[in-house]
Design a protein around this nucleic acid. Structure first.
Length: 378
DNA sequence: ATGATTTGACCTAT
DNA sequence: ATAGGTCAAATCAT
């Protein structure tokens, strides 16, 4: 099977899996109706999802399941896939690092990790205080007051950083204007085993405990935290509790132009290709979204983006970093080139979104913008 | 006792 | 010099 065919197949499977997940959510929501049929349906859906997972694993798709230790070579061509749609990723920064001969891997790679951000809105009515568990375990390692920001920014890293060398990190910044919105910036892909758990939410036991919700402190720090022992929860489940996701782009820095990397939505592994001309706006949140399964994404549209094909493994080598840099630079350029494009709202899961097996974020969450790293380390 | 969080110091890129 | 990010000792929670 050619690489292309394989990826196409994976895409189809991913879509099927996502559809099944959507159905699963729907079923979980209907708690009021006949519980018998409901649980039965839930189990069936679970089976369907399992089948998809199995098929995907047979194809060596590591997408939402982590476990990929070594960054695998990019599967280039696939990205430019068939479908169109694309978003506009914006990216930005360049890493101009050139020095770091023998820094330890973690530091070096961290520097080249890509960044993507999304906003999460907590629905007050749902009683949630802050962003919920996104399926991964995070440990807070710092907090900083940011210039001009009303609230401090929290810094988190994967709980399994030491044990499994997972270098994924994220930052949580509460929005000034709307305190119910949290801007979460992820950096680096999860390589820990736990990332895979995030995929399948336990079919039964819906409303159980919502562990860390409490962790979010109304006032200052600790937006939330997830502890390792908590069972993985699918982001989708969180959604049903009233979470709203707002994606958004981040900074963009003009640079050279060429192409933009495809975007991927972590949970649903959705990828938006650069050639997309629509515009995502932060607006978002369709009325129904509050009910959980409608995710609406918006983004700003870089026009004139070309195909792209890049390496999505940000793990290490300096080579990779270079690649990323180029990519991001291009993306940024494209993004900026777009002026005031019309706004187009995407209704998530379906629509012209394309899945790209080559790259997925293990975190659940919903993508937003692609950045590129930069950052230091010491 | 173990592991997570808090928080000021320290580091690095601007 | 400054702001953002990270470290790590002290502290808190289980």
């Amino acid at each position: 099977m050619g690489e292309w065919e394989k990826n196409s197949l994976i895409n189809v499977l991913l879509q099927g899996r996502e559809s099944a997940k959507q159905l699963q959510i729907q079923l979980n929501l209907r708690t009021s109706s006949s519980s018998h049929d409901q649980t039965r349906g839930i189990m069936l859906v679970q089976k369907i999802i399992s089948s998809y997972e199995k098929a995907l694993s047979m194809l060596n798709f590591c997408g939402s399941s982590s476990s990929t230790q070594e960054p695998q070579p990019p599967v280039g061509p696939v990205t430019e896939s068939p479908t169109s749609l694309t978003g506009s990723p914006l990216s930005e920064d360049s890493d101009r690092d050139v020095k770091d001969p023998q820094e330890d891997v973690s530091k070096k790679s961290r520097k080249t990790f890509p960044r993507w951000t999304h906003k999460v809105r907590v629905n007050p009515g749902a009683g949630l205080e802050g962003p919920l568990d996104d399926g991964c375990s995070w440990r807070k390692y710092g907090q900083k007051d940011i210039l001009g920001a009303k609230y401090p920014r929290g810094y988190y890293r994967c709980t399994y950083r030491n044990g499994q060398g997972c270098l994924a990190t994220k930052q949580v910044q509460r929005s000034d204007e709307d305190p119910t919105i949290f801007e979460i910036t992820y950096r680096g892909n999860h390589t820990c085993a736990q990332a895979s758990n995030a995929i399948l939410p336990p079919p039964t036991q819906p409303e159980t405990k919502e562990p860390d919700t409490a962790a979010i402190e109304p006032q200052q720090h600790n937006y939330y935290q997830t502890t390792p022992q908590q069972q993985p929860e699918d982001a989708l489940l969180n959604l049903r509790k009233g979470l709203k996701i707002v994606t958004e782009d981040l900074d963009v820095k003009p640079q050279q132009q060429s192409s933009i990397p495809p975007f991927h939505f972590p949970s649903p592994s959705v990828v938006i290709h650069p050639n997309f001309t629509g515009n995502f706006s932060p607006s978002f949140v369709s009325p129904q979204a509050s009910e959980a399964n409608n995710y609406t994404f918006s983004t700003s549209p870089p026009s004139g983006m070309n195909n792209f094909q890049g390496n999505q493994n940000f793990q290490s080598s300096s080579q990779d970093s270079e690649v990323n840099e180029i990519i991001s630079g291009a993306a940024a350029a494209a993004a900026t080139s777009a002026t005031n494009p019309p706004t187009v709202d995407l209704d998530f899961p379906f629509g012209n979104i394309e899945f790209d097996p080559n790259f997925t974020f293990d975190n659940l969450g919903f993508f937003s913008s692609f950045h590129h790293s930069e950052k230091n380390s010491k």
